[in-house]
Nucleic acid binder design. Structure first.
Lengths: 182, 182
DNA sequence: TTAAAACGTGTTATTAATTACATGTTTTAA
DNA sequence: TTAAAACATGTAATTAATAACACGTTTTAA
């Protein structure tokens, strides 16, 4: 019941900002969007077809260089209405997340387990790198308060991802520090 | 391409602690495990069959009451080796999460958007409730430091979920507070 | 005593998502 | 000038996941 297939709304949301190609949309999932939703091009191209057949988007063909055809997708008024509805409608689901690493920890019975330091250290490094990357991105994309206002949603998403990562790093550090000394 | 199908490892991990029925396993995903992985019984029962055919688990039939047959699954030594491998092997993937609400925010162009207060308030309530629930659980399940050591993994998972939720609540509060006053 | 809730196990159908296959063009840097 | 990287668009095959269908038992509280 109700609203699944969130990919369609994300695509519409992106096209609501500006016309984009399937390739552009795919790339969007590699950057900030990818922090909160993932999709491959093999999911995106068929979805674009479906959205077009339903009248939510249209496309225009442009030629890049000599003969490379790009399909630039535009949102229609019906599509815009659909995005508006999606955003306005409540989100009571609390989309559950998955975390393989935390699950592995769950099966570690005791804080004496000799594998713990190595496991935690590996994650600490990974998450520290990611945190650094997000920090840099936030600083370069939104250097001023004015820049934050130009695309507030983008700012929010990056900043939320950063805070989430920050928590993860701190938690790993604390958990490591709390381990019994050998 | 290495190791997908993480459900199998989670099931094995749980059976490594104690023999369980399919129903028990299903319930495990309703509680603490569910914070970091989800699975329905329609995924679990077939997976149990597969694991058994591969020799990682076996089952024993017990009768509950007059005639209700329960299949109690046990892990085999091969299965135990598989769990050990899974835990010991590195986790370099950083399992990406999904969050529909944050995505909706992404498509809000400006902090002047009249829908923002309502959207954020709804989430604040949901996450505050969840946080309270996790706090209570942590307090009842692990009232003492000694209790934490009895099943350290369980403690870690609950405590991590709580911290994550805490961050989410604080972020929502800050974002709400930073909104321009009407 | 009886109805509801919880226990218990399965399958089928559908949809979502990933991986792999498949092909070609344009740009950029060595 | 040429090879690699990036651009660009699709389909097919497989696997993961959810929702729905289906059935029966035991326990518990009204």
């Amino acid at each position: 019941m109700a609203q699944k297939n969130k990919l369609q709304f994300i695509i519409l949301g992106l096209l609501n900002q500006q016309p984009l190609t399937g390739y552009d949309l795919t790339k969007a999932f590699d950057s900030e969007i990818g922090e909160f939703w993932q999709a491959q091009h093999s999911q995106i191209y068929p979805q674009l077809k479906r959205l077009e057949s339903q009248g939510y988007i249209t496309h225009e063909i442009t030629i890049s260089g000599e003969k490379l055809e790009k399909k630039l997708y535009h949102i229609t008024p019906t599509g815009q209405a659909l995005v508006r509805d999606w955003i306005t409608t409540g989100t009571p689901e609390l989309t559950a997340s998955k975390d393989e690493f935390i699950l592995k920890l769950y099966f570690v019975q005791t804080n004496q387990d000799p594998r713990l330091p190595e496991m935690l250290t590996e994650q600490l490094q990974l998450h520290t790198e990611k945190l650094a990357h997000l920090k840099m991105r936030l600083k370069t994309v939104f250097p001023t308060v004015t820049a934050q206002k130009v695309h507030y949603g983008h700012y929010l998403i990056l900043q939320h991802a950063l805070g989430r990562e920050q928590y993860y790093v701190e938690w790993l550090q604390q958990t490591l520090a709390a381990l019994p000394t050998v």
